[in-house]
């Protein structure tokens, strides 16, 4: 039994999104969808968060930021890549400064495709993440690391 699934707190970071996905993320957090029903809170601070929502692709400028935010989220944590940009780099993939999807820098647990990802699928992604969160918690209790040591190892 874990309470993680009952109170998942989110931190949202805009890597180099076109803002399309960001707006959808925020839409999912509006009173219309009222995610607080599920105990979800949008925190502004990685140190309070459990779920890391990332939109947009990674570039040289925000790589350390992404990494830093990730590192400041206490375990157990899950990363949800939102939109095709975060997944693979999307239409920016070939840009001179773009590295690709965020899994080039940090380990990703859930990919939510779409350009832009719809609020429903974002919520769906978060729900999937909850399952992974619970598993990670269990792994943590049994001891041992919950995330791959290096980014990109899963691929």
């Amino acid at each position: 039994m874990t309470y993680l699934t009952k109170s998942p707190w989110i931190v949202h970071y805009d890597c180099s999104s076109c803002n399309g996905c960001d707006i959808e993320v925020l839409a999912a957090l509006t009173p219309v969808y009222d995610v607080e029903r599920f105990g979800i809170i949008n925190t502004g601070n990685p140190k309070h968060a459990d779920i890391f929502l990332v939109t947009g692709s990674v570039n040289e400028q925000n790589k350390p930021v992404l990494k830093n935010i990730y590192e400041q989220i206490p375990e157990p944590k899950v990363v949800v890549a939102i939109g095709i940009c975060a997944t693979s780099g999307g239409i920016f993939r070939e840009c001179y400064n773009v590295q690709g999807g965020i899994d080039k820098v940090i380990p990703v647990d859930v990919y939510v495709p779409g350009c832009a990802a719809r609020p429903e699928s974002i919520i769906d992604g978060v729900v999937t993440a909850l399952g992974i969160l619970a598993k990670k918690r269990q792994a943590m209790q049994e001891g041992g690391s919950t995330t791959p040591a290096k980014a990109g190892e899963g691929r």
Binding site: Y13, P46, K47, P64, V65, L66, N68, I69, Q72
Partner: peptide, 19 residues
């Protein structure tokens, strides 16, 4: 406890500076 840097809006270089 595991240590981490203070929260610097995600932009630290080595803990006490903004890049």
């Amino acid at each position: 406890p595991k240590h981490t840097g203070p929260y610097m809006a995600g932009r630290p270089t080595d803990g006490h500076a903004f890049a």
